[in-house]
Design a protein around this nucleic acid. Structure first.
Lengths: 196, 196
DNA sequence: TCGCGCATGTAACTCGTTACATGATTCA
DNA sequence: TGAATCATGTAACGAGTTACATGCGCGA
């Protein structure tokens, strides 16, 4: 089993390297890229991104070119260095701890026996809807990817494959979550007898 | 939709209140209770628990009795006050944001196209095993609960119902996670053709 | 005798969030 | 006129982790 070596940067750093391995981007663009779909499993505010980029640059894992613009502010366009690519590859081989989840809704479920069942059921239904909406987003993301990437989204060497993998995880996660909410709502309403 | 009122305490505080709503416990016991199964969705070290209990006590949400012991250190046994129970109930009605997930493995999946597919597949298989092991734990937890609680685990007013809900979430989550790992491993090995 | 379980705390540090700060252009 | 987009930063704060600190009893 591979041992976790002394990390070259933080996990956020690797997230940024992973984005830059695909194409060069400014800090501003990276911040926005840390949403849909990567950002569903790792995210950050710009106030974290800019200092992290500076650190990565000091460590020699990224380099930037200052692009002067007349109509809008100048920007620093970052790209991955060879050392950065190597660090990213090495990180992939490191051991990964399973994520330690913090989920306030599940925590509430633990105490839900103290709540009014009808109101609680309605709350769970709302959450089911939220997760169904996320599910739909991921599914349309996958459809778009199929159009753009075609067969390459099944090829492990293609960057599209990475997007594909993340979207699949999102789809599975959101479906499961919304199913659980729905199940819990039915239990609270006492209409779960049949489905036991 | 209920509005998030000024919180009486932190989320960890509510986690502790949720445990104390079931039975009185010392800080030490609470720390241990913040594992299996609640701790799978909210957890803390003792260094966080003790100061939080002190804050809850100052706020009047819990009270304690000092239990002197001869063979081992004295302990403070905390119990929920009426105000604490009310605060817990109020929190259940507050709006809950869907959790913002950080999952290093999914982040790695995004960059997995840079890795050696065979090694990556093996890594994903190991993670699948880990999550299957967690799944088995939750399932045996549910079996034990069925023995202990019987039909009450389906009754929304019973404390067992809360445990039941959390365990169900854990089972669904771990099953989905391990399925995803397995799916990804097969893709990396190129043996996923049939299951598309 | 060494380590573990019981039992409670404090201190230092890191990571992440929210807020502060600036400033041009474009669109409603 | 006011808000949104582009663009980059710093500062203050809070939550959470790791390490420091103590001390008795019990079993291997």
């Amino acid at each position: 089993m591979p041992v976790r070596a002394k990390a070259a940067t933080t996990t956020l750093g690797y997230a940024l390297l992973g984005l830059l391995a695909r194409e060069e981007r400014s800090g501003y663009e990276l911040t926005h890229a840390l949403k849909n779909p990567v950002g569903y499993f790792w995210f950050a505010q710009h106030s974290q991104v800019y200092p992290e980029l500076a650190r990565l640059e000091t460590a020699g894992l990224v380099a930037y070119t200052l692009v002067e613009q007349s109509d809008r502010p100048d920007k620093k366009v970052y790209r991955l260095t060879d050392a950065g690519r190597a660090a990213l590859r090495a990180w992939l081989n490191d051991a990964t701890e399973p994520p330690r989840k913090r989920d306030e809704l599940v925590l509430k479920a633990y105490s839900i026996w103290l709540a009014d069942p009808t109101a609680a059921a309605q709350m769970m239904r709302e959450h089911a809807q939220t997760h169904l909406a996320h599910l739909a987003e991921f599914q349309s993301g996958l459809s778009r990817l199929e159009q753009e990437a075609g067969e390459t989204l099944w090829q492990p060497e293609s960057p599209w494959f990475g997007v594909h993998a993340v979207l699949r995880r999102g789809i599975g996660y959101e479906r499961e979550y919304s199913d659980w909410c729905e199940w819990l709502a039915q239990c609270l309403e006492g209409t779960q007898e049949a489905a036991r």
